[in-house]
Structures are given as C-alpha cells and as structure tokens.
Design a protein around this nucleic acid. Structure first.
Lengths: 340, 340
DNA sequence: TTTTTTAACTAAACCGCTTTAGTTTAAGTT
DNA sequence: AACTTAAACTAAAGCGGTTTAGTTAAAAAA
C-alpha cells in the first residue's frame, strides 16, 4: 500500500490541492466548499489512510505545535513524573512534547537546546544543569519562549516555576529539632545547583534560628556522579566522634536511598540512633523500613504551571511579563524521624 | 536578533544556497568547494548562530532521523527507565526519540501512532496496550519499521523484544514453594495483556509441577484503573478462611506496593505470616520493610535491543526477517519471601 | 593552438503542504 | 440587459532546506 499525498487525493478526485487542504483542515465551510465535495474528499482521505506530513505542514505554517522539555534525566522519578504531567497538560492545550535528557551535562544540554530549536519547537521547558547561562541568555535575547523549572538562574529575570527549596529544607530540619535532635548531619551534592545551595541555606538557617551552632563538619558534599561510592565515607564520618550525629538530612531522594542502605549495612538503628529525613521522595518511601519522612514536591503543579506559562508566552497572551513562581513543598511525616 | 536562514548566508556572502548547504553539511570537500569559501561560510554561520530548520531539511530529504516511542505511562519507573535507555541508544545511532504515553488507552495509542507517522518518524517502538491489532497490522502491511516491546501480539509475526513472563513468574513461584509455602495467592490484573496472562500461566505451572493443586480462589484480578480501591478486598479475601494464604505473588511492582501497604495496615507479619514476592520492582524495593524479593527485568537490554533492531530495519540492513527476542528476567532474593 | 579535464561553483526543481489572490459561473438586482 | 454579488472553486507562490544537472574559467594534455 503506497503512501497517499494531498496531490494524489486532488488528482484522483479532479479537485485542486487547495480545496483538499482546506477541507481536511476543517476550513471547508468557511471557504464555501460544497458539502458534496467535502464528503468526497473526506471519505477518500479516510479510505486511503491519508496521513498529512507534519514536516511540510509545519514548514509551511511556520509552526510545529510542539514544545520541548529538557530534563536532566528521564529515569529519575521526579523528572519522569514531571514529564508525564507536562505531556498531559500540553496535549490538553494542543501541543506535543519533544523531550530529551541532558544527563546533567551542560554541553549536552546546550546541544539539546539547539537540536530542539532546529526542530522548530515553539517553546522550551528546561530543568537546566545551570551551567548554560550563555545559552539561556541567548534564548532570552532572541525573545524565544521558555520556562525554567526546578532549577533557576537567580541572576536572570526569566519565566520560572520552582519550589521553595530554602523553606522546604528549613521545615524538615526544624521538624527534627522539634523532636529533640541536635547533631544534625546534612548530606548534599556539590552545590553547583542553586536549588541545592538553597536547601543548604535552609538547613543552616533552621539550625541558627534554633540556637544550634552550625558545624561545617556535619555537612558532606558528594559528587553527583560518584555518590554511590562516596556515601560510605560520608556516613562513616558523620557517625564517628567528634561528629556522632543523631540525625541526617538528605538533600535528595537518591541520596536518601543510598544513605539508608549504608546505615543499614552498618546496622545503625534508624531512627533510634540516627533519625533521617529526605528532601523529595520515591514512590515506595512509605513502605521503606523505616518509612521515610520527606518533603514532597508539587510535581503536578510544576508541570501544569510551566506548560501554561509557556503556552501563554507562545500564543502571545502575555507579551513581556516575566513570572517567577515559587511553589511550596510539603512535609510528610513518617517514622524515620522518630515520631509516632 | 533576527533568525538567519540559509539564503541569508548565501546572499550576505554572495554565494549560492547550494554551496552554503553543502558546506554546512560537511560535503564541502567532496564537492570541491574551496577551503577559503568553506571557512567564510562556516564562520559566518557560527557568528550569526545559524540553526538549520529540521522541518525543511526533513521534508526535503524525506527523512526525519527520528524514531517514536509509545509507552503506556512515562511516570512508571519501568517505562521511564526504558525511555532513558532508548534515548541513549538512539542518540548513539544518530536518531532522536519522540515519545508519548498512551495511558493504557488503546484509542489514544492509535492516535499516537498516527501522530507519530505524520511527524515522519522513521520507525516506532511500541509497548502496546495490546488492543490495537488493526493499527499494528496496518503498520505491518505498509512495511513500516516497528518493534514491539514488553507487550507482544502473539497472533502476529512482528519484530519484538519481550521478557519471558511465563518463566519469570514460574521461578519466583517455585522459589516460594522451595521455602515451604503451599497456599500461594496471586494478585494480578485483568489479563487483557498477554504478558500478564503469561505470568498467570507461569504461576499456575509452578504449582502444578510441584503437585500443589491450583485453586482459582487464590487468584485475584484487579482492574488496572481501580486497583488501589480493590486491593483491600483482594487481600482480605486471601487472608480469610478457606483461603488463608501463606504467601502472595504480585504480578507487577505497583500492585506489590499497594499490597504490602495493605498487609501492613492489617498488621500482617511479612514474611512470617505471609511471604510476598513481586514481578518487577521499584528503586527502593531493597530498602522496604521487608526488602522485597523480585523478578527484575533487563530494562537496559530491552531498550538497546529494540533500538538496534529498529534501526537495522530502518536502514535496511535486515530487509524482511522478523525477529522475536525473548529475554530472561532475573530473580533477586530478599527477605520478603522468608529466607535469610 | 585546440581540446580535454578539473576546480569551483550555481540555477532551479523538488519535498508536501498552506494560503493568498484570483477566476469562473450562476444567481440576484436594478 | 447590464451590473453586483455570491458560491465554488483554483493557480501559483512560498515555507527553508537538499540535490541534480549544469556552467564557467582556468589549467593540463594533445
């Protein structure tokens, strides 16, 4: 069965391509194509399984009805959930989503941005590695529609949807303090990311406000690429004198996973000896032993808002205004912090 | 900053579009464009941030260098991992990936297939809802390259990469039997899916071969859309006389999650009173209380193989041969089945 | 010197669709 | 009967590239 094109339909029915195109795009009536002709065209198209070529259509109309989503890693549940919701919302608003993972590599991210641009996406949602100021700035200069999510360039005025990382970490740390913990470790990532830095500041601020003096030795920074190897030493350090923490705050879900695994390996009693809490969670965190107290992020809101903002920008409803939305994260208390 | 097109470069440098196109596609040398001209073109393009329009290029060349991936749900870790690996492998082979979730809705899946076709993807990888025989068949008839993954149409001879569901469930059930369990419940999904049905048969076969008589009352089928509500009754049924199971096999990770949650709610001791095992797992299943014995799937292999098969088909390296690859899944023993 | 070859280009068709600016014919007005 | 108007179309340009089939001028060969 050969592919059928617009011109094939036109020729077969002895009708102009124009008429066929108009009818198949639902503009038959407004262009006064007779009911009769319309029916002929539509039924012929259906019968022969006509599939319009979006490349041609996009090229011709100068639109692709596609938005791009660039995330660090589609395998990470946090981002895969966002991707799911972005797709849903985008479809609702008439857009397809093209997505790609940067794998936290800023070179690759820059490439992806260009690749998406040359695929004529009409806008971008980016959870950036935050090492592409230049690239992002050039989008901005070109007045190209985009929204940053999750990770933000604080030095730039852009559309963005982020969560309040500072406060998220502050409340979870305060929660531990409220339960009597005083020697609170913090396992984090090398803070190239503003989000991670904010979490660090939140942790620090909670301590200081509670009159606990901040001890840099209780903060362990792991490499995003090598944390699985580094976790053992980090936990080891935190456990032994003079640190001997009574609790640990993990800056993100995968550190929590490996951290808990390590604590179990060392047969540390959680939460009795060491309470733990996590920023962001995995699906099964309520089933884990012990169930893990987490600050959960409003994934769905992040997705919905960012798509809406982007589409507004694309469709020109808000012309110039830049909107930075900060969403609250939510503390979910479970047993790992020692309550109940 | 205005967008710059091929013709702009050509005009600015007083060179033909042809030359510019050739040079920018790295065909300058083979077409004997002078080094000098090449340099001029390349530096001008770089300086003005030239980004070629893929729609135009794709249209003109009749290729999009894109493959489509259709999965039930990108938020499901199983599929998001596959997506991640598919993207990686595809990029390696020079293709971009367009992906979309069908949300287990076969109408939507059919739409997605058409949407992808009209975006001129050169091939498709589909984890089908298995309710689109017609659609898939028509791909087959049109000789359009595609590979089915995870879910298979057994009545059709297509390229496919699947796991051995029958055997996966068989070995995990045998494992329970080996540990002395005799009354083994099976919590599954309404078996519209061949994969699910195969798992059911594997369960049954393990029982029969062990001389345990198969009791239909120990099999609970939940609706994929409503399992969270139905789990309570299912577990309740399995626990009470005359069923009183000593173990449960869950057909997929999310049923395991809700099932374990329900068992905990009822304060059933796992694994002492009821052992559990899972087909497929979540990231944190080793941290769960108790750590869950699972049959894990070779996600990476599924992704790599399917992309390779597809690209081979697309590039015509294997012209006609249809290849069905069945991969083994792997039993990972943890505490939830009562060992150690 | 004439012919052939080669280097270094270019004009224009084409990909499949959309859309603007008509055209043609018939019906309605005056 | 001449003039408008409306209905039902259509030709052709254009979207931004790629590619085929040349062309032109200079160098090499005869």
């Amino acid at each position: 069965m050969k592919k059928v094109f617009l011109k094939d339909i036109a020729r077969s029915l002895s009708i102009s391509k124009t008429a066929v195109s108009l009818v198949l795009n639902g503009k038959g009536d407004e262009n006064k194509i007779s009911k009769d002709t319309q029916d002929k065209i539509i039924s012929f198209a259906k019968k022969h399984n006509y599939v319009p070529n979006q490349l041609a259509r996009g090229l011709s109309r100068g639109k692709s009805e596609t938005i791009g989503l660039i995330i660090p890693n589609i395998s990470d549940t946090f981002y895969s959930k966002i991707a799911g919701y972005v797709e849903l919302k985008a479809k609702e608003l008439g857009y397809s989503v093209l997505f790609s993972s940067s794998n936290e590599d800023n070179k690759k991210e820059a490439e992806l941005i260009r690749a998406m641009l040359n695929r004529q996406v009409e806008g971008l949602i980016i959870a950036s590695t935050q090492n592409n100021l230049k690239e992002i700035k050039s989008l901005q200069d070109d007045d190209f529609p985009f929204v940053l999510i999750d990770r933000n360039y604080p030095e730039m005025e852009t559309n963005a949807v982020v969560v309040d990382n500072f406060n998220g970490l502050k409340i979870v740390t305060e929660h531990l303090i409220g339960l009597g913990r005083r020697k609170i470790g913090f396992i984090t990532l090398e803070p190239k990311l503003e989000a991670i830095h904010q979490r660090y500041l939140g942790y620090k601020s909670a301590l200081i406000e509670a009159g606990i003096n901040f001890n840099k030795d209780l903060v362990k920074e792991l490499s995003p690429l090598n944390y699985e190897d580094e976790i053992s030493k980090a936990i080891g350090d935190l456990l032994k004198f003079p640190n001997s923490v009574d609790s640990v705050v993990f800056v993100t879900h995968y550190l929590t996973s490996v951290g808990l695994r390590e604590l179990k390996r060392r047969q540390v009693k959680v939460p009795q000896e060491v309470a733990i809490v996590s920023f962001d969670e995995l699906t099964a965190f309520d089933l884990v032993d012990p169930p893990i107290t987490s600050v959960i992020q409003p994934v769905r809101d992040i997705a919905n808002l960012s798509v809406e903002m982007l589409v507004n920008r694309i469709e020109g409803k808000d012309k110039t205004m830049v909107q930075k939305t900060v969403l609250d994260s939510k503390l979910v208390v479970r047993k790992s912090c020692g309550t109940f």
